[in-house]
Amino acid sequence: MEALKQRAIELLEKGEVKAVLGYAKGTGQARRAFFARQPGQVDKLVLDEACTQNLAAYATKHEVKKLGRVAIVAPPATQRALIQLMAERQLRDGDLAILAVDEGAIKELGSAAALEEHLALKAQGLDAKDKTLLAKLDAMSREDRWAYWQNEFSRCMKCYACRNSCPMCYCEHCTMDCNRPQWVPVASHSIGNLEYHMVRTMHLAGRCVECGDCGRACPVGIPVHLLTISAEETVHELFGQRAGAKAKLDYALSTFKTDDKESFIR
């Protein structure tokens, strides 16, 4: 933590960055995103288990880009999101100073190559709780799974917290906001909710970095992250690729192999 603060102060003092985006204390036990814009504010930065938000979601925001070059505190999921954003050309190599945090250790990564190398050393594992939930879903009958999601989606109000918290949902014009044609109803009724979550899942298949922020963001506790994570795992199982690993675009659904294996097409 001290090393992080020290480096943050240096970066700000030398003018290498205009802000250090990290975590600070929030309401109660919560942690929140914090932009330290002066060396004097660096003291507010904290780093602990409660720092879960994927700050990469801010990297593509107009308001943040306008600040100038930013340093970003990046736990593993944030690192994956950042490299995926670079792969999708939403960030340029060197746009950000990446302060990679791995189990308390800080490492500054100056380039996409360094980030890629850094990520290659790590195994990506699913959260134990999510694994259990996914297994539970898998074990359900189809009818029960349908009922389960219908029940969960009945609380959805399309606040789009899941979309807006997602680092990969950076589109200027989201499908949900397009109305010519109006593919997905705007209204948050049953079919509108179902189609929204289907579209969100498909759009993130092969792109989801499995940070789980969408699920954490949901104010009514719908585990929407299970959908994107399971889609991402499907892509991995079927095509052996993972989002958030390479700085060059490697999107499973924009390519193919002539021997892709399936067993359901008649």
Binding site: F35, Y58, E63, C159, Y160, A161, N164, V186, P219
Partner: peptide
Amino acid sequence: SLRCIGCGACAFVCPTCVCFDIQ
């Protein structure tokens, strides 16, 4: 607002927020 992500959670849980859309 720098950390606001522009979702509608606050408005939708709010007991007084009344803005609506007609679809």
